[in-house]
Amino acid sequence: MKKGLLILAIILVIVIAFGSSIAGSYNNLVKLDEEASAKWAQINNQLQRRADLIPNLVNTVKGYASHEEEVLVGITEARSRLETAKTPGEYAEANAQLTTALERLNVVVEAYPELKANENFIRLQDELAGTENRIAVARMDYNEAAKIYNNKVRSFPTNIIAGIFGFEQKEYFEVSEQAKDVPQVNF
């Protein structure tokens, strides 16, 4: 009788120990998941902000450099790609495309001193530069958080718990190798 009680107690201790360690791992995963998601939201906000600045920029440029239709179309296209992106990788690619389009604009702008001196244009450029920098920072923060989360999801024994509860790895906010290989149009 006493022996049975002892065995029961041992089993109980083991069950509690296992249960609490599983709960601990689970809670930790939830926390890391939330952190990464919050940091992703930061990137998303800034991408949205960047996209919102574009129509204003395009209109301002049009007033001075209406001949540069091609460059402006490129910017508008990149912007709409940003709006339809779904995964972090797609967002990163659309964002990179927009950066390239804006760089082309900056080259073109050199030929329009009046536009370059336009107060509104200068402020928009500052807003864009600040937003780009925010994206860079948010990207660093997110990738760091995603890496910590992914490491947890992949490493033993948390990977078992992650598998049971359906925690999946997070995609990094970076341009994939495939997209990098797309030939750039030269001017």
């Binding site: 402020r123 928009l124 450029q125 500052d126 807003e127 600040g130 937003t131």
Partner: peptide, 11 residues
Amino acid sequence: LPDGKVGEIRD
């Protein structure tokens, strides 16, 4: 201090 304003201070 939005970016545009900071840019103005800079300039």
